[in-house]
């Protein structure tokens, strides 16, 4: 496979200003020594534009917009290979998730759209207590405004239907998690 990772040209952000929203994830990777074990361990690195190693360094340089424009953190599948192998014991998988949260909150429309999969999933959990796979996927298709997306899932949907694995209808735990979600929202200061 050809090497798709090219050197990056960038202008370092002024270091006098500290971006508070970056501090959480910067603290996770502060001790990174740029060994690249994370990149070498990542099963999805081949599809990333920045390697994980490059991305950690850019975060420490405060290059927030450059990182948020990257697709790298959206490609983390939470396999924890990098976290397991990091010689500095850094929580790299958790840092990837923190970047997904940051991109959902502060990113452009493309980033917010990528966050919809997770948000629609959790919205369904909030309502139903236990995830209702069928209802979740329907809402996700609607939220994405992509007419081709349901077609992609058509063949799998038919297979699952034939096996009696698609359930409509609700769960006995419907509404159970509403108060917990609301409390967490107020504790995290979100609306």
């Amino acid at each position: 496979m050809k090497n798709t990772h090219k050197p990056i040209a960038f202008v370092p952000a002024p270091l006098v200003f500290q971006d508070e929203t970056l501090v959480e994830v910067q603290n996770m990777v502060r001790a990174c020594m740029q060994c690249g074990t994370c990149t070498a361990s990542c099963p999805n690195a081949f599809a990333m534009d920045l390697t994980p190693r490059q991305m950690w360094r850019m975060l420490l340089f405060g290059l927030k917009q450059e990182v948020l424009q990257s697709r790298t953190f959206w490609l983390c599948s939470a396999c924890y290979s990098c976290t397991l192998r990091c010689p500095r014991d850094l929580p790299l998988t958790a840092a990837m998730a923190a970047l997904k949260r940051m991109a959902a909150a502060e990113g452009d429309s493309a980033n917010r759209k990528k966050a919809l999969f997770y948000q629609e999933f959790m919205h369904n959990v909030e309502q139903n207590g236990r995830i209702q796979e069928m209802g979740f996927m329907c809402h996700y298709f609607l939220a994405m405004h992509d007419p081709l997306l349901p077609m992609e899932y058509g063949p799998l949907g038919l297979k699952l239907l034939a096996k009696g694995k698609l359930h409509l209808g609700g769960s006995g735990q419907r509404g159970r998690l509403g108060p917990l979600f609301a409390k967490v929202r107020s504790m995290e200061g979100a609306s």
Binding site: A78, A94, A97, A98, K100, R101, A104, A115, F117, Y118, Q119, F121, M122, V125, G129, R130, I131, Q173, R176, L177, V184, M187, E188
Partner: peptide, 14 residues
């Protein structure tokens, strides 16, 4: 109830 699966961490750390 649901544990949040792999979708919860990209939404809320708490």
């Amino acid at each position: 109830t649901c544990c949040g699966a792999s979708a919860v961490e990209p939404v809320s750390s708490l």
